[in-house]
């Protein structure tokens, strides 16, 4: 059985990749996927700790996060479709209508 550190390192790597993706990419869908990756990195941490501490609470959290992520995906994708219909683009640089 792998030690806790292994899980945590993997999770940190995934989270960092996600963060860098969010900060550097312009395609909204890619950013969206990066966010999902960050969420799942956190899920991995929670599950690892849950197992390590023998406490089921962490896994319950994971279910909640997955539910929220599903809802977020539905809303987020709907927003993107709506935006694409208006602008024919899903580049976040183009989301600037509120700017002065």
């Amino acid at each position: 059985m792998l030690a806790l550190e292994n899980y945590l390192v993997l999770s940190a790597i995934l989270f960092s990749i996600g963060t860098i993706g969010v900060l550097t990419r312009r395609n909204a869908i890619v950013i969206f996927m990066c966010v999902e990756m960050m969420l799942n990195a956190v899920n991995l941490t929670l599950v690892a700790f849950s197992r390590y501490l023998g406490n089921i609470d962490g896994q319950v959290f994971v279910f909640f996060i997955m539910t929220v992520a599903a809802a977020e995906a539905a809303v987020g994708l709907a927003l993107m479709i709506a935006f694409y219909k208006n602008r024919e683009s899903i580049d976040v640089e183009d989301i600037n209508m509120m700017k002065l």
Binding site: T19, V22, L23, T24, R26, I31, V92, E93, I95, N96, M98, K99, L100
Partner: peptide
């Protein structure tokens, strides 16, 4: 303070991070 509000999502995400 208006100049902080750039309108670029990346800037916001970066400052949050």
């Amino acid at each position: 303070l208006r100049y902080v509000q750039t309108g670029f999502v990346h800037n916001y995400a970066f400052s949050m991070t």
